[in-house]
Amino acid sequence: MKRFLLAAVFATLWAGAALADGAISIGDPHVRLVPPTAENTGIFMVIRNQGDKDVKLIGADSPASKKAELHTVIEEGGMKKMRPVHDISVKAKGETVLKPGDYHVMLIGLTKPLQEGDIVPLTLRFDDGSSQSLQAPVRKIQVPMGPAAAMPTK
């Protein structure tokens, strides 16, 4: 835990430095709380690009798992299919949302079970050579209770 906290402190410092550039910013990063036996989990966020050029997220690293990969979920032939992707693009002056049922950073092989409220350090690498380091809190899965008659949208 100590190492986690230390990493989180550094992550904050790095994030501050990276934000000074201003082009890319990350909103609401969070890790999905999964059962203690689960080996993987997803990280979701909004990636905003205030720059004039399109950028691509090309990789991610986290000390919380053996590997961090970029994934998406496609719906095909009546099935949910999770697939690794090479990159996730963010248009100039645009944003890309990483969310359940869609793009996400997948942590594979969690080094230890995550608890609600833990902070997971994450570094994102972009194709313009920049990187963003951030800390993503672990959050319980929030499913809106929804009206009983509502048709699912996602």
Binding site: V143, P144, G146, A148, P152
Partner: peptide, 8 residues
């Protein structure tokens, strides 16, 4: 179906 909210 997938995506049905808890109340449904």
């Amino acid at each position: 179906p997938y995506g049905a909210p808890p109340l449904e």
